[in-house]
Simulated assay, not measured.
Amino acid sequence: MTDLLPIGEVARRSGLTVSALRFYDGAGVLSPQAVDATSGYRRYAPGQVAVARLVAGLRRVGLPLAEIREAVEQHHDVELVDGLLAAHLRRLEGGLEDARREIARLRAGLGDQGESAAVRVSVSAAGLRRLIEAVAFAVGRDPDLPVLHGALCEIEPGLLRMVATDRYRLAVHEVEVWQPEDGRAGQGCARGVVPAAWLAEVGDLLRDTGGSTAVSLALVEDEVSLQVGTAGCSAGLVDGDFPDYRRLLEGQDQSSGSAVESRWQTTDLEIDARSGTATIVPASSTGAGPGAPGITVRHEFLLDAVTAAGDEPVLRLDGPISPLAVRGSDGALSLLMPIRPEGGAPR
């Protein structure tokens, strides 16, 4: 084994430090070809230098350790490694968008001198009604999780988004908004959890309002308010940190080799009335051939999600243990957590 390379030489050729090579050995990512039983000195095969360079590159872009290990184990599978890189790049881009939104929010708050600056937008009555309709069903009721007793409301330039979750399902939708002509409030970003009671009050207020009527919505630190002509309603925001829903949404807009999409009208259901579950089996789908695995969810939750999706809902299945996605034609999205076929708790 005289052609084996010492660890220092592998470090020099690969760009990894000696300590990094020792770490990746201990982590089961890149083990040396031989280890001296007495001194513990590591020696590597020449062919491992290329693998070490791959590890160095993956490390520089911040790929998680588990995915570095998978990439090394399958480094001959170019398609698999490329898929890992593509998924990581999407995560990085999503993180950058989150940072941009937060920076925009911080910038909007600069210059406040003890007085809260409201972010106010105008939105069509029809758009706001649809927004609430698309997410309200997923608002939580767990007394131990009060921050879920409402919907996260996010205002960004030109966009109003609402998100609701009770941990077993998640609903998100967004509509276009514009700045009010009177310019009474600053532009920028704002977010807060609006209580379920306020959502219901807004729904009642908008029930007899013409769809094209513009209404004014404002977020200001600890309060949300809505103005419709001379009528209005306001409420305090719910305290607490809303869950990071974006992590759950990662990959929903990306195609997957195992993903199956099926129109609701062509989906077969196997309903178990005793357990209150429904197993979805796509009968007419794209992305997979016959025999695609079904997914079991709560029947009541499925009907809620399909109703909230509106016309022509599409179901996306990505295996029996991945969330079931229900998407409406206008982009409204619901995710339902799978449960055990026998009707057990969510996975």
Rank of each mutant, 00 (worst) to 15 (best):
M1S: 14
D3A: 03
P6T: 03
G8L: 11
V10R: 01
V10S: 11
R12N: 07
R12I: 03
S14W: 03
G15I: 02
F23W: 15
Y24R: 10
G26Y: 06
A37G: 15
G40Q: 09
R43T: 01
Y44H: 03
V49W: 05
V49T: 07
L54I: 10
L54K: 11
A56L: 05
L58R: 12
G62K: 13
P64F: 04
E67W: 02
E67Y: 00
R69K: 09
H76E: 14
D77H: 08
L80W: 09
L84F: 04
A86F: 04
H88P: 08
G94I: 00
A99H: 09
I103G: 00
A104P: 05
A104K: 01
L110C: 08
R120V: 08
S124C: 01
A126L: 01
L131D: 10
R141W: 06
D142I: 11
D144N: 10
L148T: 10
H149R: 15
H149A: 15
C153E: 03
M162V: 08
D166C: 05
D166A: 07
D166E: 02
A171S: 15
V172C: 02
P180S: 12
E181K: 00
E181S: 07
E181I: 05
D182F: 04
G192S: 06
V194R: 05
A196N: 11
D204M: 02
L205Y: 11
R207Y: 12
D208R: 15
D208W: 13
S216Q: 06
G232F: 03
G236K: 07
D239Q: 02
G240F: 10
D241T: 06
D241Q: 01
F242I: 00
D244Y: 00
R247G: 15
Q252F: 11
S255V: 01
T267M: 14
D268E: 14
L269Q: 13
I271C: 13
R274L: 14
G276R: 02
T277G: 11
T279K: 10
I280L: 12
A283N: 14
S284T: 08
A288P: 06
A292C: 01
T296N: 00
L302P: 07
L303G: 04
D304Y: 01
V306L: 07
A308Y: 03
D311S: 14
L315Y: 13
L315I: 12
D318M: 08
G319C: 10
S322Q: 12
P323N: 11
R327N: 01
D330Y: 08
L333T: 09
M337I: 06
R340K: 12
G344P: 05
P346W: 13
